[in-house]
Design a protein around this nucleic acid. Structure first.
Length: 232
DNA sequence: AAGTATTAATTGTTTACGTCA
DNA sequence: ATTGACGTAAACAATTAATAC
C-alpha cells in the first residue's frame, strides 16, 4: 500500500543507482531516483494509438473519461477508466456470444467503443475471472449442500445400523432364553455311541454339549435310541 | 471520514506455437 | 526428419488501486 506522499508513476524508466547498502535506509528511496530517463514518450503499442476508427455513438462521458485518462497519464498518475453503460452493454453482449476474443474482434470492439485494444483485452480477462469466481461460488455452495446431505445420510445409516444391532442382540437373547427353557440337552456318549438326555450334558462328556431341540429328541426317541441310558 | 464492494489495470507465470540452428 | 533453444503472444492467477456507495 502506498502512503499519501508517494506518487504512483506508471512511466517506463531506466534508472541508475549506487549500492543501497552504502546509503542510509531512510534515504534509499530518494537515492534511487538520482538518474532517471523517462521513456513514457515512446509508444508501447502502435495499436494503443489507433484512434482512426471512431464510432459516433459513444457518449461524451466516455470521451471525457478517455481524455482524462490520457491526460492523467501524462502527469504520471494511474486513472481508472469507468466504462459507460453503452460500453459495458456492448462488451457484455460480445462476451455472451464468446468468452474469448476472436481474431480481429479486439480491434473491432476497441474501435467501436473508442477504447484501446489493450483495454478490451483486459476487460475480457477480468470478465472471465469474474465468471470463474461466480462459478466457483456456485460450485462451493452445491458441494457444501451435497456434503451436508451426505453427512445426514451417513448419520441416519449409522443410527439405523445401531438400531439393527441392538435389535439383533435383543432377538438373540430372547431366542437364547426361549431355547434354554424349551430345549433339552442331548449328548452323544463317545464310548457307547448312545444319545443321552440331560440338563447338564456338558458335565458328562468332554466333547461338549450337543444342544438339540425337542423335535430332535422326540425323533431320537421314536427311533428307539436310548436316551440317558434308558428308553423313556 | 472510514469501510466495503466493485472492477480497471498491473505483474508474473504458464502454455502453445513458430522459427532456426 | 528430429530435437532443443529461443522468442512471441495469449490466457490466466494474483494482486493493486481507483472509484462509487
Amino acid at each position: 500500500m502506498k502512503n499519501d506522499n508517494e506518487v504512483c508513476d506508471t512511466r517506463l524508466t531506466l534508472g541508475l543507482a549506487t549500492n543501497d547498502h552504502l546509503v542510509p535506509k531512510e534515504n534509499q528511496k530518494e537515492h534511487k531516483k538520482i538518474i532517471c530517463l523517462d521513456l513514457s514518450i515512446i509508444p508501447l503499442h502502435s495499436s494503443d494509438h489507433d484512434t482512426s476508427k471512431i464510432d459516433g455513438s459513444i457518449s461524451k462521458t466516455c470521451k471525457d473519461n478517455n481524455k482524462f485518462n490520457n491526460e492523467s497519464k501524462k502527469i504520471g498518475m494511474r486513472k481508472k477508466l469507468r466504462l459507460t453503460k453503452e460500453q459495458s452493454t456492448l462488451l457484455e453482449d460480445s462476451f455472451k456470444r464468446h468468452a474469448t476474443l476472436a481474431m480481429g474482434q479486439k480491434q473491432e470492439l476497441a474501435a467501436k467503443l473508442e477504447l484501446k485494444p489493450r483495454q478490451v483485452e483486459v476487460w475480457f480477462q477480468n470478465r472471465r475471472a469474474r465468471t470463474k469466481l461466480k462459478q466457483t461460488e456456485v460450485d462451493y455452495e452445491f458441494l457444501k449442500q451435497w456434503c451436508q446431505s451426505l453427512n445426514d445420510e451417513n448419520n441416519r445409516l449409522k443410527k439405523e445400523l445401531q438400531e439393527l444391532k441392538s435389535f439383533e442382540i435383543d432377538q438373540r437373547t430372547t431366542l437364547f432364553h426361549l431355547q434354554l427353557s424349551k430345549t433339552r440337552t442331548l449328548a452323544l456318549c463317545s464310548s457307547c455311541q448312545k444319545i443321552s438326555r440331560g440338563d447338564n450334558a456338558d458335565e458328562k462328556y468332554e466333547t461338549g454339549p450337543k444342544v438339540v431341540s425337542d423335535a430332535m429328541f422326540k425323533r431320537a426317541k421314536s427311533n428307539n435310541i436310548i436316551v440317558n441310558g434308558k428308553n423313556k
